[in-house]
């Protein structure tokens, strides 16, 4: 039987706010993530998904959790641009590489930055900077790439371009993607499975398998299956939480 590459059991996180109240951010979250494809954590803003993604990436260790991993290299791409503005595209992507065997030029080509190797990112768009961050993560040959809601500040045209790029990368590489978003359309378009999470405290309330074609195009967004997935996600939130969706981007 197929074994999960990441098995998260009973992840909880409590923190004390500035006034002294204890806030239960995450409560008993258990997730299995399998090799290949894209698993998305869909949650409203402020539900603790960034914290969960950092726990998965090993960047936050202040948690009571059991995480079984059969992978050692997990790259993390944060929500704000993380490409270094003082380096050009090529140096950014080579940053952190331990050996010279990594396919830097392949990563550059895959994310569509060929011809921009000497460009600096300080005056470039967030879409450009995301491409650099993605190429850098890919060049480090990770088994898992965790991406935390990076498309929030993109305009709609760039956002769609990045969706197609992401799908291309998901299909063409052997990397497993774990993606966090508050955008239902984005979650369905990019993912192979979606974990639905609620807030206060952050808990997983359901899991949906997305059975859409591997090659996803624009017209898919208006297809019957796509709309059905969207409606069913909205229904789950309404039925399980007993209220309308809020704090979600659609």
């Amino acid at each position: 039987m197929n074994q999960p590459i990441l098995k998260l059991e009973n992840i909880s996180k409590v923190y004390t706010d500035s006034v002294g109240y204890k806030i239960h951010l995450l409560e008993n979250i258990s997730i299995d993530i399998f090799k290949k494809g894209c698993s998305t954590i869909l949650a409203p803003k402020g539900s603790g998904k960034s914290s969960l993604l950092k726990i998965i990436s090993n960047l936050d260790k202040e948690t009571s959790a059991t995480i079984e991993k059969s992978v050692s290299r997990i790259a993390y791409i944060p929500s704000s641009p993380s490409s270094f503005p003082w380096m050009n595209v090529n140096d950014n992507i080579e940053f952190g590489l331990e050996n010279n065997n990594s396919d830097v030029s392949g990563s550059i080509e895959l994310v569509g930055l060929k011809g921009y190797e000497d460009h600096y990112s300080h005056n470039k768009s967030e879409g450009f900077r995301f491409r650099i961050a993605l190429a850098r993560a890919l060049a480090n040959s990770p088994e898992v790439i965790v991406i935390d809601e990076p498309f929030t500040n993109l305009n709609s045209t760039t956002r769609q371009e990045i969706y197609f790029l992401m799908r291309k990368v998901i299909v063409e590489t052997k990397v497993t993607f774990v993606f966090g978003t508050a955008n239902i359309t984005e979650a369905i378009f990019l993912s192979d499975e979606i974990f639905l999470m609620k807030k206060k405290p952050g808990e997983i309330i359901d899991k949906i398998k997305i059975d859409l074609p591997i090659d996803r195009q624009n017209k898919l967004l208006e297809s019957k299956e796509f709309i059905e997935y969207r409606n069913s996600i909205e229904d789950i939130y309404q039925n399980k939480l007993g209220r309308l969706l809020y704090n979600f981007s659609v």
Binding site: S57, N58, L59, A75, Y76, I77, P78, P81, G96
Partner: peptide
């Protein structure tokens, strides 16, 4: 920016 450090830390 924490983003720089987080992304870099994940690359070990």
């Amino acid at each position: 920016k924490k983003e720089y450090l987080d992304a870099a830390r994940s690359l070990k």
